[in-house]
Amino acid sequence: MIVRLQTEPFEPGALLTDFCRGRSETGAVVSFTGIARASAGATQALELEAYPGFTDAEIGRIAEAARTRFGLDDLMIAHRIGRIAPGEAIVFVATAAAHRREAFEAADHLMDYLKSRAPFWKKEHGPDGARWIEPTARDLADAERWD
């Protein structure tokens, strides 16, 4: 299981290739890549702040719980921190399980957690300056589906 926070851009295809390698008992791998949106020019960059040692530990705890809950063989989470330009991948989640249903559900669950409850602080830089963003009602409702 890998949980990684990084300031450098990553290439989701390469992460998926590595994640799939050498699996003979895994029947299903599901991956999700989130990409920073420009929102028609309203967002020039996202800035994501984490608390090193706390943010990764909290995400690791949720990842471990998800591995048990969905009976996963393995999972991987890579998350950008720092300044992220539109078009760049911001998050990558991959789940591996014997069968597809568990892999799909675990990836969905992990993304709902990461989008609304993970300890990040997100700032949006736009033409009119910067503002701090909080989860949308939709993000919060999505996360509640798993409680």
């Binding site: 989130g34 998050v91 990461l114 989008k115 609304s116 990040f120 997100k122 963003i133 989860p135």
Partner: peptide, 10 residues
């Protein structure tokens, strides 16, 4: 000691 405003998610 860290003071944390509401978390936004990623």
């Amino acid at each position: 000691i860290a003071f944390l405003p509401p978390m936004s998610g990623g």
